[in-house]
Design a protein around this nucleic acid. Structure first.
Lengths: 328, 328
DNA sequence: CCTGAAATTGTTAACGTAAACATCGGATCT
DNA sequence: AGATCCGATGTTTACGTTAACAATTTCAGG
C-alpha cells in the first residue's frame, strides 16, 4: 500500500479511500491511484483489515462429513447465502465423533478467524453437558435438540415422519415397519419417535425397528430381514439411501414394489426420482436450512441476540411410484 | 492479551510465549498466565497473527457446486488433509459458470485471507485465455486441461474410460454406446474422447453419442432412446447418476440388465453398489485427488515452485452385476 | 484581492501479535 | 569477591489498514 502511495504520489490514506470506494477523492487522483494499483498488482491485505475492523466476514461450519447428501447440500446453501451477504465460509471437519475431537474442533474454532459458527454434527454428543461451545462466539446448531441452550435450526422431522406414516395408513396398510438410522443420530431418533407416535395414535401395532447406519448397504440388510416377513406390506425408511438398499433387497426376494410392499424414504435426494421404482419420500428443504442458519448468525453478529429455541423448517411428502394400496 | 498480562503480572510478550508454547518460561509463571487466560476467557486473535506472520493458514476452494458427489467428496478430502497440516479451508461458491462470475470469484479470492487456492470448476472456461488467475497466488486446478498454464490434479479419466470400454469388448460385445456428460464439461469430453479412441483402436464402429447433463433424469431420457435400438447391447455411461437413469429406462422398456444390455458407469459413488443391479463402474479416488491438491499447494507455499503440469490419479474398474456377455 | 467555507489530501494513532533486542538476577568459575 | 555467563522476562518495533483529526488547496462571494 505504501508502494502504491509512493508511485501515485499520494498518501496511503488516499489509497485506502480509493480501495474502498469512499467519496472525497477527485477523479484524476483516483485514476492515478488505480493505475498504480494495477501496475504493482496491489491487493488489500484482509488480515490487516480484519484486525482493524474486528470482524472477519467469515462464518465457520463445523461438521463430521460432507459425505451425506443432506450435509453437503446444507453446506452449499450456507455458502451461497453467506456469499450474497459478503461472507465467506470456513470448513472445519471433525475426524470421528468422539468427545475429544469435538472439543478440539471447538477450541480450534474459537481461535479461528470466524464471526460465527454453524454446528452440523447430527449426533447427540452436543446434549451431554460436557461439551460446551466457547462462550462469546455466535452459534447456530443444525439438527440437534440443544434447543434449550443454543439457537437451533432443524427440519421438521417429526411432521415429515408423520406424513409418511399417515400416507401409508391412508392407502390401507394395517401398520408400517421402520428402518431407522443409527441410535446416536438425533435425526434418526426423532424420525423413529414420530413414526411410533403416529402408529400409536392411529391405534396400530408398532413393529420392531430395523436399525441401519444411513448407508444403502445397511438398508439392504435391513430390507432382507423385512422381506422375509409376509405381513410386512409398508416400510418407512429413515433416509433415501437406505431405501435404495431396501428396494434392492425386496427385489432380490421377489417382492414387488409397490404391488407387494410400499416403501417411503426421507430426504428426497436428487436420485430418488430415478430409483426403481421412483421413490415416494419426504422432501427436506436443505437450502432453506442453510439460509436460516446464515440469517440467524447475521442477526446475532448485528447485535440482535438470539436466545435458545428451535426454528423448524417444514417438510413435504412427495408421492411417486413406490407406494400403493396393499394387495387385498 | 494486555489484560491477561496485567492480571498475571507479566509482560504481554510472556503471554505470547505461553500461548505459543515457547520454551524459556518458568513453570510457575506459565501457570499464572494460564490461569489468567482462563479467567478472562482469552483467545488469540488470528487476524493479528496472520498480519504478523504474513500467512493465514487457510486454503481457498473455488467451485460451482457441492451437489455432485465427486465435488463434495473432493472438498471433504481437501478439508481433512488440510486440517492435518494445520490449515483451514474456505469455500467460495460461484453462482453460475459465466465468465463474469468466475472472474469475480477470482477477484474476491485475491482479496481473501487464503494462502493458496484449489479451483474445481470442471468446465472449460479456464481454457479461454480471458480468464486468468490473480498472479502471485498459489493455485492448483482440478479436472481441467489448463495443465500448460497451471499445476493440475486430475483423475486419469482417459484410462478409466478405456478400461470400461475394454471390459465390455472383452465380454464379447460388438461395440459400446456412450451416454456422455454436457459438452462444456472437460471431464465429459475426456471420457468421450477416450471411449472413441478405444473403439477405434479395436476397429469397432463408433455409434453416435447420447448427451446428458450428469443428472439421473437426463440419463433416463438417453436410456429411453438407446433402449429402442435392439443392436445396442453395451453402454458406457459417463457417471453413475446418469447410469441410474439408464437402468430405469432399460427396465421400463423391458430390456434386462445385464442379460440384454450391459451398463458401466463412472465414479463409483457409494450408492452404485446398491443399484438394481449393482453397477459395474470406474472407481475414482476422490480422497487421493484432495490429498494431492493440498500437497501441491503446501509445496508451493513452502517455496518449492510447482510449474504447470498434470498430476494424474489412477482409476480402477470395479466389476459388479450390470455387465455380462451379450446374449448370443 | 481578501475572507471563509468546502473540498481534498495528509498525519497520527490504534487494532493484537511476535521477532529482535535489551535488561535483570542469580549461578558458576577463577 | 569479582568477572562471566545464562536463563528468564521486559521493551521496542513492525506487520497493513483505516478512523479521526489536521492541514492544505480551491473557489465563491463580497
Amino acid at each position: 500500500m505504501a508502494d502504491v502511495a509512493k508511485l501515485a504520489g499520494v498518501s496511503s490514506q488516499t489509497v485506502s479511500r480509493v480501495a474502498n470506494g469512499q467519496p472525497g477523492v477527485v477523479e484524476s487522483t483516483r485514476e492515478h491511484v488505480l493505475a498504480a494499483m494495477r501496475e504493482l498488482g496491489y491487493r488489500p491485505n484482509s488480515a490487516a483489515r480484519s484486525l482493524r475492523y474486528g470482524r472477519f466476514n467469515t462464518l465457520g461450519v463445523i461438521l463430521f462429513s460432507l459425505a451425506s447428501t443432506g450435509n453437503s447440500r446444507t453446506v452449499e446453501a450456507i455458502a451461497v447465502h453467506a456469499a450474497t451477504e459478503g461472507y465467506a465460509i470456513t470448513l472445519i471437519p471433525v475426524g470421528a465423533p468422539t468427545q475429544d475431537n469435538v472439543l478440539g474442533a471447538f477450541t480450534r474454532m474459537g481461535e479461528l478467524a470466524v464471526d460465527g459458527i454453524v454446528v452440523i454434527l447430527e449426533v447427540q454428543l452436543l446434549d451431554s453437558s460436557t461439551v460446551h461451545l466457547p462462550p462469546g462466539v455466535h452459534v447456530v446448531v443444525v439438527d440437534s435438540d440443544a434447543g434449550d441452550r443454543y439457537p437451533v435450526v432443524d427440519t421438521d422431522q417429526a411432521d415429515g415422519a408423520r406424513q409418511a406414516v399417515q400416507h401409508l395408513l391412508d392407502l390401507g396398510h394395517r401398520t408400517v415397519w421402520h428402518v431407522s438410522g443409527p441410535a446416536e443420530s438425533f435425526s434418526a431418533e426423532r424420525r423413529a419417535r414420530a413414526w411410533r407416535t403416529a402408529l400409536e395414535q392411529a391405534g396400530r401395532d408398532v413393529p420392531a425397528i430395523e436399525r441401519g447406519d444411513w448407508s444403502a448397504d445397511s438398508g439392504y440388510h435391513a430390507g432382507l430381514r423385512l422381506a422375509d416377513r409376509p405381513e410386512c406390506t409398508a416400510i418407512f425408511v429413515a433416509n433415501d439411501q437406505m431405501a435404495l438398499g431396501v428396494l434392492r433387497a425386496l427385489q432380490e426376494r421377489g417382492r414387488r414394489v409397490p404391488q407387494d410392499v410400499s416403501v417411503v424414504g426421507f430426504d428426497d435426494i436428487a436420485d430418488a426420482a430415478s430409483y426403481l421404482p421412483p421413490l415416494t419420500t419426504v422432501h427436506q428443504d436443505f437450502a432453506g436450512i442453510g439460509k436460516r442458519c446464515v440469517e440467524s448468525l447475521l442477526r446475532q453478529i448485528h447485535d440482535e441476540p438470539a436466545g435458545p429455541g428451535t426454528d423448524l423448517v417444514p417438510t413435504m411428502l412427495v408421492v411417486r411410484d413406490s407406494t400403493a394400496p396393499p394387495a387385498s
